[in-house]
Amino acid sequence: MTGFRVLKGGILTLVQDTGRLGFQHLGVTRGGPLDARSAYWANRLLDNEPNAAVLEITAGGLEMEAQTQTMVAIAGGDLNLTINGEPQVPWRSFWVRQGDRLKFGTPRYGFRAYLAVSGGFLTEPVLGSRATVVRDRLGGVHGNGRPVQEDDYLPCKHLSEEGISRQIPQNYLPQLGKQITLHLLPGYQQQAFSKAAWKQVFQQEFTLSNDSNRMGARLTGEPIPVPDQEFLSEGVSYGAVQVPASGQPIIMLDDRQTLGGYPKLGNILPLDGFQLAQCAPGAKIRFKPIHLAEAQQQMRRYLRFFGL
């Protein structure tokens, strides 16, 4: 078996594919890359299947040694990748040889980098997916949801011939900023929130909290008035903005629980969720309303672009 040997796991490095589908009724989380668009780009640079497993590298620190020769591609946040000490230009594919050392530093911009390898990382799938969901103890290198760590071995194919190095066109590069606007699609218990609550949602600036993770982005700001009503738990879809009694919203992301009972304002547009995934804690967040038809049209364009 050929692949990469991990020298340092970094802050949080996870094997991800598009996720574990069809088990949410048993409480199994889907998982998947938080910035799915960057993961698709990394795979596309190598002509991989969109579902090929990539590494999601959060905030840097990963070091590994190639024990084979292959093409890799890097997209998403710029985490100051060096190969044998040489700085690399992000958003492109390149050739690595046996013995090459890949080292991710700290974020220059963005927060999560995606590393794809030709043919994808070939870890053992669990329930049909290689996605690592730490809180479900499923997927990843050992199948038990553990993040990538020192001495792990990441299997992949060996390539006999060097491929063409490609770069993502400048105009497709995402805007990675410290201030973002999330389009909010009203839904769920939208009518249970008061006019004053809605006004506050759209007028104030929130801050992305340190407690944020792959499960949910926690925001802090002036507390939003919460409906004086208990709701039964119900299915929670991607991007649901739930408001617990503290009035501080939580945006549910890929590792969210399948069911939840806090009142929800609606859902954010997934395309904005990808941008959110590139924000470090402390980023400033605003909400702006969007209609279902417009939101679906934007998603259609994105899915068509990646042939999904």
């Binding site: 699609l185 839904g187 769920y188 939208q190 039964l232 879809s237 991607y238 991007g239 859902n267 939101a295």
Partner: peptide, 17 residues
């Protein structure tokens, strides 16, 4: 019915257990 994002619909049958 309530929208639950771009690709999900919530079918709600009341709020009692």
């Amino acid at each position: 019915f309530a929208a639950a994002g771009v690709d999900a619909l919530l079918m709600q049958f009341g709020q009692t257990m």
